[in-house]
């Protein structure tokens, strides 16, 4: 059974000084799916991501990745196993070039990242692959730009390219279209669709248009607990959901 699921949590709980931010969450993410995690602000979505990638330690509960218990693994090990996250606030290396951002991710598998005596020219073997990744997210023209000078939407695209560089089995995206104009949202949406081939994506997303067109399955969180779960059609008909979350936004 657990073979079908890339990621599974059992009674995942996080308490902050008596306040329960994530409450007994049982989440199952099926291999190959785009799985959306939605819910009002403060519902515990980001905290959930922090738990899954061990940026926070769960108070209780178990996390299984490919059936393996990773509840006590370090964030670094989890990334190495193939679960890579992005952040709600854009996560780039602002004063490095766009190309260097992607190379940082690619560089790990060369196994020379502790070699302080080697020239950084030895990293040039990664340039072709880095360029490929940048082209994939339409950033080829920006390769030599210092990242901080790019518009916001482009930075988020760069984040995707950097995450993709690790060829993760499971990508966690925290509000990838947050704060974007309409055109950027469309572009990022297509990007996510494109890169979802051959991998699993778990994403937090507020934009219901994005959620409805991309996701295979949706989990709704409210005050830290799972309100309901299912495909969009089902979830969007649920009266609790309509009231708690979609009521104001959904037609």
């Amino acid at each position: 059974m657990s073979q079908d699921f890339v990621l599974e949590t059992q009674s995942l709980t996080k308490e902050f000084k008596g306040f329960t931010a994530v409450d007994d969450v049982n989440l199952q993410v099926q291999r190959g799916h785009i799985h959306a995690l939605i819910g009002p602000n403060g519902a515990g979505k980001t905290t959930c991501f922090n738990l899954l990638t061990k940026f926070l330690t769960p108070t209780r509960g178990t996390i299984l990745f490919n059936g393996k218990d990773i509840t006590h693994s370090s964030p670094t090990d989890i990334a190495k196993m193939g679960m890579v996250r992005s952040f709600q606030i854009s996560a780039v290396f602002p004063h490095l070039t766009v190309m260097d951002n992607v190379r940082i991710a690619l560089q790990r598998k060369l196994g020379t990242s502790f070699h302080f005596w080697k020239s950084d020219k030895s990293l040039d073997v990664l340039n072709d692959r880095a360029m490929e990744l940048l082209e994939e997210v339409d950033l080829g023209k920006w390769a030599d730009t210092i990242t901080v000078e790019m518009p916001y939407g482009r930075k988020r695209a760069l984040e995707l390219a950097t995450t993709l560089a690790l060829e993760p089995e499971l990508m966690l995206l925290d509000e990838p279209t947050q704060g974007m104009g309409h055109e950027d949202v469309e572009r990022v949406m297509h990007l996510i669709k494109k890169v979802s081939a051959g991998r699993t994506i778990l994403m937090v997303e507020h934009n219901l248009h994005v959620v409805s067109s991309l996701s295979d399955r949706i989990t709704v969180l409210q005050r830290g607990a799972v309100l309901t779960e299912g495909p969009y059609e089902e979830v969007s008909q649920n009266p609790d959901v309509r009231e708690a979350y979609m009521g104001s936004e959904a037609a």
Binding site: F55, S86, F87, A91, F93, D100, F116, K118, D120
Partner: peptide
């Protein structure tokens, strides 16, 4: 050389955005 090495690249990445470096699998 240290600054301009593969190691130096990671060091700069950590200075620029430590959580991101962690999430990319760097200890």
């Amino acid at each position: 050389r240290t600054i301009h090495s593969p190691f130096g690249q990671i060091l700069k990445a950590i200075r620029e955005n430590e959580p991101r470096a962690v999430s990319l699998g760097y200890d």
